[in-house]
């Protein structure tokens, strides 16, 4: 079986990125294992969940490239979680399967195109012919209602816990796509609907769903469709898998979905 050193794969990622590597990143680092780990195959995923680790190992993919965290906090700071028995369980399982984890977050978002947007737009059926300008992530669709738009997205994604704020009957056509936690402004006069991953409900730095509630009260048609963080960014990890495969032809590279963590009553 052919293998590559994780460090070699990282070197190829850096050389193909098309943007300078920023060593100051605390996110895009090894979270388990290291450059010496021999890699038999690569799993890309939204979250390096324990379930993903186990399924990747079973598929013979011992390098995991998640977009998001491994240890339940943004810095993957193990001093926060180190005393939790679940941390030990997770680490033991990763050790047993000779796993190496390297996060690709910051550099994925500086890359052009940003695969998270490409993947999300593809999954939502937001065709580039509707995009107002390349990589504007702004789409003008044939007019529909917020309810029909949300229902269509839910069906396409199979999302169980997608949430919507706004009047279901509001006539909408201008959509701004956001990914993960970085949602664009809903306040702009030329935006009807934000479609994004996760957004703080109120009391944050940015716009909140509360704005949409008040806009609706004032008769201004606005909407916010929240897909959930994992659903929002996971499709971009399929693009990531294709990209990594293009320069690591020696080994298999696959998307191993973390999937939607929720169900809803």
């Amino acid at each position: 079986m052919r293998t590559l050193a994780a460090g070699e794969i990282l070197a190829r990622i850096k050389s193909h990125l098309g943007a300078p590597w920023r060593d100051a990143t605390y996110r895009d680092t090894f979270k388990f294992g290291g450059p010496e780990t021999r890699v038999t195959g690569i799993a890309t995923t939204a979250f390096c969940s324990l379930d993903v680790v186990q399924r990747a190992a079973k598929a013979g993919l011992n390098m995991i490239i998640p977009h998001e965290v491994t240890y339940w906090n943004d810095r993957d700071d193990v001093t926060i979680v180190g005393d939790d028995p679940l941390y030990k369980t997770k680490v033991d399982i990763m050790r047993k399967h000779d796993i190496v984890v390297f996060r690709m977050h910051d550099h994925m978002h500086v890359q052009r195109p940003d695969f998270t947007y490409v993947g999300s737009a593809r999954a939502l059926g937001l065709d580039s012919k509707y995009e107002t300008a390349p990589q504007s992530h702004r789409f003008t669709l044939p007019e529909t209602t917020l309810g029909a738009l949300a229902a269509g997205f839910q069906k396409r994604l199979g999302a169980k816990a997608l949430r919507v704020v706004g009047d279901p009957n509001a006539k909408v056509s201008r959509i701004q796509l956001g990914v993960g936690y970085a949602s664009p402004s809903v306040a702009g006069p030329d935006i009807d609907v934000i479609v994004s991953g996760e957004q703080q409900e109120s009391d944050g730095m940015l716009d909140s769903p509360a704005y949409v509630l008040d806009a609706v009260s004032l008769g201004i048609p606005k909407g916010w469709i929240m897909l959930g963080h994992a659903i929002s960014e996971e499709q971009g990890m399929l693009e990531m898998a294709h990209w990594v495969k293009s320069f690591t032809p020696e080994i298999p590279v696959e998307l191993v979905k973390a999937g939607e963590p929720f169900w809803a009553p």
Partner: peptide, 10 residues
């Protein structure tokens, strides 16, 4: 979601 939701999932 990247904190408590993933912790609960794991």
């Amino acid at each position: 979601e990247w904190e408590s939701v993933e912790y609960a999932r794991d």
